[in-house]
Amino acid sequence: MATDSKSDKATGALDKAKGKVKEAVGKATDKPGTESEGKAQQSKGHAESAKGNVKDAFKK
């Protein structure tokens, strides 16, 4: 299923926010696994946002 650039950007922003929370919880509770999951989720969010930006570039 194809998604539009706004959807990709929104998904990316949500993943970045959730990842930041997860990373902070991991640091606060001294759980490196949770902290790593948060960082990974943030990376996924950055990639999803970039995907939306690429779609926008090709629309022009």
Rank of each mutant, 00 (worst) to 15 (best):
G33L: 06
S7Q: 13
V21S: 12
D30E: 14
K18G: 06
K18D: 11
K27P: 01
A24D: 14
D56Q: 11
D4L: 06
V21I: 15
K27H: 00
S5P: 10
A17T: 10
P32C: 04
K59W: 00
G45R: 04
A47R: 05
Q41M: 14
D56L: 11
V21F: 14
D56G: 08
A24V: 02
S5H: 12
S7F: 08
A28C: 01
D30C: 01
K18Q: 14
A10V: 09
K6W: 03
K55C: 07
D4E: 13
S7P: 00
G38M: 00
V21T: 12
T29C: 04
S7G: 05
D4I: 05
V25R: 07
K55N: 08
S36G: 06
K20Q: 15
K9W: 03
Q41T: 13
S43C: 04
E23T: 07
S43V: 04
L14P: 04
S43L: 13
K9H: 05
K9A: 02
D56T: 08
K9E: 12
G45F: 03
S43W: 06
T3H: 11
K20E: 15
A10Q: 09
Q42P: 02
A13T: 07
K55T: 07
G38W: 01
G38Y: 00
T11S: 08
A40C: 03
G19H: 05
A40W: 00
E48Y: 02
S49W: 10
A10L: 13
S36N: 13
P32H: 03
V25D: 08
P32Y: 01
H46L: 12
T34D: 10
G33Y: 03
K51E: 12
P32K: 09
D15L: 15
K16H: 08
F58P: 04
A50D: 14
K44M: 05
E23A: 12
D15G: 02
K39L: 14
K44S: 13
K39H: 09
A10D: 10
T11P: 01
T11R: 14
F58M: 15
G26L: 01
A10W: 04
F58E: 15
K39G: 02
D56K: 11
P32D: 02
T3F: 08
G26T: 00
P32A: 11
M1V: 09
G26H: 00
K20C: 04
S7Y: 04
F58W: 13
V54D: 13
S43I: 05
K6V: 10
L14V: 11
K16C: 07
K44D: 10
E35F: 00
D8Y: 04
G38T: 01
A40R: 03
D4R: 06
A24H: 01
G12V: 01
K44F: 09
K44E: 08
A2I: 08
A47H: 06
A13Y: 00
A24Y: 07
K39C: 05
G19R: 02
K20G: 15
K6S: 10
K16D: 10
G45C: 12
G26A: 01
A57P: 01
K51V: 07
A2G: 09
K59V: 11
G38N: 01
Q41V: 07
K44W: 02
T3Q: 11
A50L: 12
T29M: 09
K44V: 09
K60A: 09
T34R: 05
M1L: 13
E48P: 02
K22A: 11
L14A: 14
S7W: 08
